[in-house]
C-alpha cells in the first residue's frame, strides 16, 4: 500500500473533524471531533514513519496520544463544572468571554 493513500485518508479524517467542530454546538461532540483531528495527525505520523523506515515517528504518535488524553481529561472536567453550575451546555450560549 502506497504511503499517499494513508496521507490522503488522514487529510480526509482531519477535515471531517474540522467539519464537526464547525457544525456541532455541544461541547462534548466538539471534544470528540478534536479527537478525530488528533487521530488523523497520528495516522499521518505513523504513515510517514513507515515511509522513512524509522520508528521514531511512532514515538511521536504515542506522545500525541498522551496529549490527547490530557486534553480529554481537562475538557471533560470543564464540561462537568459547567453542568454543575447549571449553565447551558451549548457553545453558542456560553459567550460571556466574547468581546
Amino acid at each position: 500500500m502506497n504511503t499517499d493513500w494513508f496521507v490522503v485518508l488522514s487529510a480526509l479524517l482531519f477535515s471531517t473533524g474540522a467539519l464537526g467542530i464547525l457544525l456541532r454546538r455541544s461541547p462534548m461532540v466538539i471534544l470528540l471531533c478534536l479527537e478525530l483531528m488528533l487521530n488523523a495527525g497520528n495516522l499521518a505520523l505513523v504513515a510517514f514513519s513507515r515511509m522513512v523506515g524509522n520508528a521514531q515517528g511512532q514515538v511521536f504518535a504515542v506522545i500525541v496520544m498522551v496529549i490527547a488524553a490530557c486534553e480529554v481529561v481537562v475538557g471533560l472536567g470543564l464540561i462537568v463544572a459547567i453542568f454543575r453550575r447549571r449553565l447551558p451546555l451549548d457553545v453558542d450560549d456560553l459567550r460571556e468571554l466574547r468581546g
Binding site: 499517499d4 477535515s15 515511509m51 523506515g53
Partner: peptide, 28 residues
C-alpha cells in the same frame, strides 16, 4: 470550508517533491 481544507491538505502533501510517497516504503 471542510472540503476546501481537504483539497488544500491533499494538494500540499501530494504536490510536494517527496518521491517516496508513491512507493511502498522500505523493507523493515
Amino acid at each position: 470550508l471542510a472540503v476546501a481544507l481537504f483539497v488544500e491538505l491533499s494538494v500540499a502533501v501530494l504536490s510536494s517533491s517527496l518521491l517516496a510517497l508513491g512507493a511502498d516504503g522500505p523493507d523493515v
